[in-house]
Design a protein around this nucleic acid. Structure first.
Lengths: 207, 207, 207, 207
DNA sequence: AGATAACCGAGACGGTACGTCATGTCTTTAC
DNA sequence: GTAAAGACATGACGTACCGTCTCGGTTATCT
């Protein structure tokens, strides 16, 4: 039994020991994740249920429970299965531009249906330490890492103030995006740029 | 997903027509809201159910359904019934200090049990326009109003840059606080102050 | 909530208090018992399940659980609902004839489909004190009462020995019938008569 | 309902072919039967399951299924594996005494834990012809054989009536014991003796 | 005073979903 | 060929809530 949320069911990690026993059905696994994501996208976590995923995917409920310990675990896994490889991209080397691009891509990623799903998922992670961890690892941390790189390179170049509190800057712009998503306000490019401008103003060398 | 959340059923607003018929039981109404909030505080919206509220308050489930159209409606109503008159306070007149105090009081308000409830409630407002409206009116708007006053007075005094995008500044710090709450990170005074510093840095007159 | 197995849900007992609340649906109640008995008759208790009863009767599973605490309780109730008014009949006054008639009617009652159901039900009552009580009250006790009357009248008339151990006689013939039923041997009139003869031989005045 | 119960898989019968392939594990076989009986004794057939037997014996479920076609088959096999060599004993030659001793030993055998298991097993043999056959062969027939010998010797000696319907007498006392077992009443020596007395009264020469 | 409203409580009803357990089948590796 | 391991579809278990629906009683105001 997988320890908590995840189920690593990777395979890409080379030699998985492959002991005796009927091998896990990859198709069933995929079908579950796809059905789960589809349901999430259509009705949010509100209408998400293991029962429904089972019916839709054609996979027995018990099989689902074998691999995902709870409804939340499945929801978050199916979400990150789709969302993971989103916010990234080439760097220009100009800190301001790179930051702006990062904010834009984050906003773009969350503006679509995936945004509603993300909001739904995090929202329901209240008190579920495991889900929060997963969210941090798969969403927050990569985002923080990229932002940090950009901001640090800005400091190195002398564009940004040397005493910049990078962690707080990230808190500010990520929080702004996410809160707006939750609150149901529109997320578009103009807003993203305005936010970038405001945040970047605080990053520059003090006169 | 329920959309009409509210139920105005107040009565304090003067002339409520007051036709024939048994008048609404104020005690039952109060008992429901109190029980609802208590449940919310103890177990979050996860363990919140009309059944439970009914049992705890001693009010029949049907009576609850008569006045609140859904679980979400009751949850949010019971929340704002307690939370409304929170973030406020006297002003010193020094923009930096006032801003810092505002952030501190917001963080303090959300750090306690009420914070978990707030997170819970907003979280579950996904897609429920009515709840989002209520949240904006009772929580966001007052906060924005106070923040705006402080920031504008700072601009007037020349402490803050004249071209400050006030709305974005507010987005940033409120979002930061709320996101941190959602994500389960600690909310304390130090963090509040660090955030204030970072935000205020962006507000000052450019060199 | 009904204490254990039964649920008296009678109604014939005059005034049933009739407190507040939606009145119980007699039709649902009847549908459940009928469906339950039909399933019992078709496949024995082996294929009996609350799920199935629910589907067949068109009554929600939860409603069934409201009234019957377990599968066994429902099974036995539905059985006695049909079987109760069976073994009885007028007396001739001649003890031998009456006894013979009683055995015949018992055998006849258990030879049909009801017999298989009875066997099934008692069989599965292993360890279930409540079911055993019900079975004793609704099946064994009435049978014992009638047998006792017949045997006592035979003693009074001088046909049967005065020191007859009535309880053991009843144990013997009832057990014989039931065991034969369980073991899958044929139950017919000839066997019933042969059994009666053997038992009656032991009842007569000693030479 | 399963019909083929047996599975001959013994092997002690001489030449078992012994072709290619991994030889059958005697230890696994024994472990299964022992675990099965232990479970039967502890919780009756109610708590008996292939799953549990597998876990307890450390034998794979699939292996069990290879050798026993169903839960009932395994239950009855494990039961008779223990119970078979029970009711027997030396004869005194005095028919009354021998009969009394037989009844006592039958009651004693069924009064202990084995009795509950026996009841459980037969009970669940409803409709399973194969199990009924096994039960008859291993339990009823030996008992009938011994009883018949005793009763016939009694007839030969002139103690018992010559027209005694032996089969019915056996039906009566065996049935009485078994029914009492099923019904959950106490089985003890006094009751056994009272039953013997009553039955023997019917066996004596008519005055 | 009596009718008429609107309310409250109790409780039953058909449902959906939960998470667990057992069934019997199938598929793979290891002896 | 047999054993062990384990995945699978199926289906039942008993529980918690959902939202709806009757009922019997209880206050009020409006004739």
């Amino acid at each position: 039994m997988p320890e908590s949320t995840g189920a690593d069911h990777d395979g890409q990690g080379a030699e998985r020991r492959r002991g005796a026993g009927r091998p896990r059905s990859q198709s069933a696994h995929r079908a579950v994740l796809e059905a789960a994501y589809a349901i999430l996208e259509e009705g949010g976590i509100e209408h998400f249920s293991i029962d429904r995923v089972g019916r839709r995917s054609g996979v027995a409920r018990t099989t689902i429970y074998r691999w995902w310990p709870s409804k939340a675990a499945l929801a978050i896994e199916s979400f990150f299965n789709q969302f993971e490889p989103q916010v990234a991209g080439p760097r220009s080397g100009v800190p301001d531009d790179d930051f702006r691009a990062l904010v834009r891509s984050l906003v773009a990623a969350l503006a679509g249906p995936a945004g509603r799903v993300a909001a739904s998922v995090v929202a329901h992670a209240q008190g579920d330490k495991e889900t929060q961890r997963r969210f941090r690892e798969n969403f927050s941390d990569p985002l923080r890492k990229q932002s940090t790189e950009i901001l640090e390179s800005g400091i190195a170049r002398g564009t940004f103030r040397p005493d910049l509190d990078i962690a707080r800057v990230i808190d500010a712009f990520v929080g702004a995006v996410y809160f707006r998503l939750l609150i149901g306000s529109t997320l578009d490019r103009d807003w993203a740029d305005a936010l970038s401008t405001t945040v970047l103003d605080g990053c520059r060398r003090a006169g």
